[in-house]
């Protein structure tokens, strides 16, 4: 693989100019996009500083701006905010690891093995997403409640029970994504390994997994954000403030018909976004980390 430097040297001066010019254009586009992306967030930040707890005031810096909302949020003995973040990170972290493992293994089978029902299961996975699950909540509640009567640590009010429910979504659309990615990795690679006497499992873990790293990270981030942002399932299965996840806790501030407490909600949402941003910052190198299939000689 030729290095960038080498490519550069081969370019003529006019090409160099063109490249620079293109780069400037790209930079301008990127800056405009960043403004588009960040602008509404600035208003959330503004709301978090507004002591009157309103949303979308006229000026970016609200009158009497201060950290009151943050102080209230972090010091309310009835609202264990850090506990909520910890619960969310714990639940999302465990769910992510487990569901990525499940997804990847299933995707391997769909991509590399041939068996009866393969296409139909793939179709079914897609069609299940179509079903408007208006009543899924009631069904899931009853199931977890009854399970808890038999195995208490999987019942209502338990994080283990909630994680189980989240894992129900691991055979989801991400299998398609993962399978699509696997399909682009040449078969010849694993066949060579198989001929050398490796088992499916060895091929999968030693050969394919390293190659899958970018998409593993993407699917992982998607799973993490999806779980982290859920409050529909969590709020029906959890009732005690110390068990709440962040989103369930934050929803408490906004649900009052007229008196929504946007200030504390915004403050919480901003702090709550940090774990996701940190996870992304740590992992983003892996997504575009320069690994390419082409690096493996056929």
């Amino acid at each position: 693989m030729p290095s960038i430097k080498a490519t550069y040297e081969r370019l003529s001066t006019s090409q160099k100019f063109m490249r620079r010019f293109a780069l400037v254009i790209k930079l301008i586009v990127a800056v405009i996009m960043v403004i588009f992306a960040i602008f509404p967030v600035l208003w959330i930040f503004s709301a978090s500083l507004d002591p009157t707890s309103q949303l979308g005031s006229q000026s970016l810096i609200p009158r009497n701006a201060g950290l009151v909302n943050f102080q209230k949020l972090l010091n309310d003995p009835l609202m264990p905010f850090w506990r909520w973040i910890w619960n969310s990170v714990k639940i999302s972290g465990i769910t992510t690891i487990l569901s990525v493992s499940i997804t990847t293994m299933a995707a391997y089978a769909f991509s590399r093995l041939r068996f009866a029902g393969r296409i139909n299961i793939l179709k079914a996975i897609m069609l299940i997403q179509v079903f408007p699950s208006l009543l899924a909540l009631v069904a899931i509640y009853l199931m977890v409640q009854q399970t808890g009567k038999i195995v208490p640590w999987l019942g209502l009010e338990t994080h283990a029970g909630l994680i189980m429910v989240y894992l129900g979504g691991s055979m989801g659309i991400n299998i398609w994504l993962m399978k699509g990615f696997l399909d682009t990795i040449p078969r010849a690679i694993d066949e060579a390994a198989m001929i050398d006497g490796a088992t499916n499992w060895q091929t999968f873990t030693r050969l394919l997994l390293p190659l899958l790293r970018p998409i593993l990270v993407v699917v992982g981030i998607l799973a993490f954000i999806g779980t982290y942002g859920d409050f529909v399932l969590a709020r029906i299965l959890l009732s005690k403030a110390e068990n709440y996840t962040l989103m369930v806790g934050l929803a408490l501030f906004t649900d009052n018909q007229f008196a929504q407490n946007w200030g504390q909600f915004s403050a919480g949402a901003l702090i709550g976004a940090l774990p996701v941003v940190i996870v992304y910052l740590l992992l983003q190198d892996q997504i575009a980390g320069g690994l390419t299939v082409g690096a493996v000689k056929e």
Binding site: I102, F110, L113, G169, M171
Partner: peptide, 28 residues
């Protein structure tokens, strides 16, 4: 059924928390 061993955990969870709620909805 060897290929299914790769996805048996996922399928189990899918039956429990995705397909069963659908059946429940149909019943309701």
């Amino acid at each position: 059924a060897y290929p299914y061993r790769w996805m048996v955990i996922g399928l189990s969870f899918m039956i429990l928390f995705a397909i069963y709620p659908m059946l429940f909805t149909i019943y309701v």
